[in-house]
Design a protein around this nucleic acid. Structure first.
Lengths: 141, 141
DNA sequence: TTGACAAATGCAACTAATTTGCATTAAGAT
DNA sequence: ATCTTAATGCAAATTAGTTGCATTTGTCAA
């Protein structure tokens, strides 16, 4: 996986730097998508600058190494891209996140392209389910 | 549709006010999801306050009247919820939006719930495709 | 190796999105 | 018509994300 990453970055013309390795290492072992705030907190603001995190994430996104996920929670989240194509179910109350698989992306994007007259290519997609987790259901009156 | 809206709002304990009617009218005739900026610009900042727009959108969302859509474009977008379950394909370059249909939401959310141990209910979902439109493809070197 | 060059980083300051507090206004029930 | 409470508007605050510029550090070629 590390090899893969280094290659991807180089292929895209990016340098392999210490902050990038640290950030990718973090995202690789993360169990859920992380926000910039969480990333900086986890690495330590003395070891990496917030602005650098934003810029690295932008580079990783362009290189196809990570994906951005929107939980309608006020900021963007990021995770390493796996081809296994998993998605998320998010608790709208406490923002807990769980993964699930089973989105037939290929069929859907083909169908969408068939319907479209302005698009000929789909690069990526997002699919999120919003629900209430068992803990938060109990809290509701 | 207007009746439906009024009922939904009342059912949720919300008052029917002039700004709400204006905002809903706008979203109903909109061809694509709108951002707060676009909404205020369209209605006119003398006729409705930006903060009011945010609060109305929050209320509408809770009442299930509108849906929030994330185009990874720096701000949230909103559209009236139709049960027809359409989705969007967005140009990552120029942010052009097109609709498409064909997401088997019921099957997918059932499948996700089956896989989950912490969730028993899905309220809504998001599904977006990110691509490059024909115009922007030509612009690329 | 070693230096040169460009790209990457850090810091400070900035812009844009969204939220909060509080005084005023206006639905809608009585 | 009046009263109560939610909704609105304005100002100010907070938070996410961006930009400019000086400094550092990979990388590549000698």
């Amino acid at each position: 996986m590390d090899n893969n990453f280094t290659e991807n970055l180089k292929k895209a013309g990016y340098k392999i730097t210490k902050p990038r390795l640290v950030l990718l290492g973090l995202l690789c072992k993360a169990k859920h998508p992380m926000s910039v705030k969480e990333i900086v907190k986890s690495i330590g603001s003395k070891k990496i600058n917030q602005v650098t995190v934003y810029r690295i994430l932008t580079a990783f996104k362009k290189a196809g190494i990570i994906a951005q996920v929107d939980f309608q929670a006020g900021c963007a989240y990021f995770e390493v891209r796996d081809n296994g194509d998993h998605h998320h179910i998010i608790c709208t109350e406490c923002k807990k996140v769980e993964d699930f698989v089973g989105c037939d992306y290929d069929a859907l994007s083909n169908e969408a392209l068939k319907q479209s007259n302005d698009f000929k290519k789909v690069m990526h997609h997002s699919f999120e389910l919003f629900g209430i987790c068992n803990t938060c259901i109990l809290k509701q009156s």
